[in-house]
Design a protein around this nucleic acid. Structure first.
Lengths: 119, 119
DNA sequence: GGTTGACCTACACTAAGTGTAGCATAGTAA
DNA sequence: TTACTATGCTACACTTAGTGTAGGTCAACC
């Protein structure tokens, strides 16, 4: 069993973020020690890692919550979940293209500066 | 002279965003018509376009404000401004790399789903 | 005279947390 | 024993970059 601090360290979330996810319903309310401190099992650590993975791809907390519900609902929701991941992948690809075009804008700005333009 | 609605249309900001930028000090308070409506000159439209350009690269409103102050301070601040744009460029490059690695994570997730894993 | 449409201000709300205040508890050091 | 430090708890305020809403003004059209 891990304290919230240990869990945070292991997973790479802040303590506050973990409490926030619990409040938002992404996590079942954690078991508590006699001192009322949250305790996390290995399986709950895995859930957190899983949340971290989804979160890092830019999926919103609300969407992760939906996704978590689907996972709990069992394999029947698998096709739906695959679709969500595919959509998320497309969103990432779009983001990358957008950022690349913004890079071009900045390059142009720099060129204008180098050419003596002054704003 | 343009109304705020026309300005918003021309630049591609929402009306609310323009008022927000004024409140934040990115824009000088706009001139007003007899009816107290904001009026924008072509030069102010150009400022807005300029803000839009910086904003799209992911620069924060606060940083754009600093940048705007430097522009107003004149050519002496040019080297500093070039540095800011270069840093912003690097941030974009880093963002792109991060997103690419997140793509790999999603790919792996999908592969695991295709291989019959169920969460 | 009534009703759009565009504008105004001020305030509330959003996401995804972070930061702070005020408290309890446990372990360690003098 | 007392003091200090670390870690945890709750609850609330704050952040960013706006968006949305309520309530009001004004000119133009039918």
């Amino acid at each position: 069993m891990y304290t919230i601090g240990q869990a945070a360290q292991k997973v790479g979330f802040s303590i506050g973020a973990i409490r926030f996810y619990e409040r938002k319903g992404l996590l079942e309310p954690a078991a508590r020690s006699e001192q009322n401190n949250r305790l996390y099992t290995d399986s709950e650590i895995n859930w957190l890692v899983f949340i971290k993975c989804l979160r890092e791809t830019g999926m919103s907390v609300e969407d992760i919550k939906q996704f978590a519900n689907m996972v709990m609902a069992g394999t029947a929701t698998l096709p739906e979940r695959i679709k969500i991941i595919q959509d998320q992948k497309q969103k990432l690809l779009d983001d990358i293209e957008e950022k690349k075009s913004q890079l071009v804008h900045l390059e142009r700005k720099l060129q204008r500066y180098y050419n003596g333009e002054n704003y």
